[in-house]
Design a protein around this nucleic acid. Sequence first.
DNA 1: TCAGGAAAGTTCGTATACGAACTTATCAAT
DNA 2: ATTGATAAGTTCGTATACGAACTTTCCTGA
Lengths: 253, 253
Amino acid sequence: MTERPHAYLRVADDLREQIKTGALTPGLKLPPQRLLAEEYGVSDILIRRALEILRNEGLIESRQGSGTFVRERPPVRRISMDRYLVDSGPQETPQTSFTHDAGITWSQYRLDKAFAWIEADERLAELFGVDVGARVLERRFVFYAVGEPSQMSRSCLLASDVEGTPVADPRHEPWPGGNTGQLRSLGIKVDKIRETTAVRMPTPDEAERLGIGTGVPVFSITRRTYAQGRVVEVADPIVIPGDRAVREDSIVL
Amino acid sequence: MTERPHAYLRVADDLREQIKTGALTPGLKLPPQRLLAEEYGVSDILIRRALEILRNEGLIESRQGSGTFVRERPPVRRISMDRYLVDSGPQETPQTSFTHDAGITWSQYRLDKAFAWIEADERLAELFGVDVGARVLERRFVFYAVGEPSQMSRSCLLASDVEGTPVADPRHEPWPGGNTGQLRSLGIKVDKIRETTAVRMPTPDEAERLGIGTGVPVFSITRRTYAQGRVVEVADPIVIPGDRAVREDSIVL
DNA sequence: TCAGGAAAGTTCGTATACGAACTTATCAAT
DNA sequence: ATTGATAAGTTCGTATACGAACTTTCCTGA
């Protein structure tokens, strides 16, 4: 690391180094900004800038009125397209794509849900391949694994497919077998799933619901579920905290 | 968007909105901070904070002594595992997985490279499935598409495979057909590729090389290339700016 | 006409300062 | 012993201020 000309960068570099090497261990509380300013011999505003940089990098977390802490690294969850195989497979034990990925059992699983009938806006209509204004069942979920929020999503189904069926009834969630299971109960056989994965910073709302700092990036996945050549389900977006998940993909040539 | 209690967030929101809606078009120069401060009726330091947020989001770019400009939005690049099919396919026109993804021709493609012989550290050894300390050819690349840096990576090959071959000679980069082509030239037939995709904030170094703000998240991909059941190449990490790329994946049930 | 340099404009680094908002620790009163 | 109020500690929002470093414009002089 070459000598930095700017004091706040030097401070940031130094603290980052200490965190990376483990001199500052996760969960540890940093000295108050007052002290840091004194130690480094710079004004408080430079300390604040340095801390903001580290906060953006996801290395630290500030709690107002309490202090600044080195962030804990939560366990990693592996997301793979294979999870959709369990949805459609035999159901010895109840599972969904989510429980599969999170590596948890049905009983450690919980979700918040909110159903609504809406009209497809431009984006949704394009994803579905239907006209704008088409009636759609919008289902918003927040998934918890062992109490920790670890995924939220908005999943949509066409009213023409599900209106008046048990699938449209929130009380049946969570549904063993997940989306694919639900669709199968309607006689719709899912044959292809496409996902578009983007990465971005969370909205303030997402950050709060997922219990992450606003400096932690997220996966934002758009999923299209196909059956007989048409789109039967659209999830847009599926939001997953980036600090506790990785995608796994493979190709055989 | 609800009313924000904090002035600098209001300013940032307002400017962001103007950029998103196109009221401020790419390339345009913003009013100087002095004027902005006056317009919004806040002190200059709040303007600076607001601008820093937008800079981190990759929306604007400040040139010292000159002004602050709305950034040009680079086109979105789609990353899919399909790109590895090109590598191994017939070579009518030279291509690599990178040119395929970026949707560019060979001539719009350029890369910086740096080769070195190193000894495998713990992580690398585990990825390869060899002993720590094994000799490895480390190749660092920065890929440019139409002049814009859009990917950087560290790709490693085992010395036992490549030492003394043309593949180990930097002058042969870029190699038509990419990694797979190189390995084929050594008589190694790639049969499987696995990728682990994480999302995180860029290191300061990565942000600089990729020309992104430190607030723009990146894809960090670890790739393992297999042939006959062993790992013949490891790319760790492949770093791709999150503001100009999305992953595309699909599964057929 | 052209080169050189000064002047103006601009972002950026940095300091001091004060109070608001929030959390934690302390201590007193019931 | 439990509760409730108070104080201390801490981050955060915000203001003013000055000069450094850099870029662009413009003017001067040959």
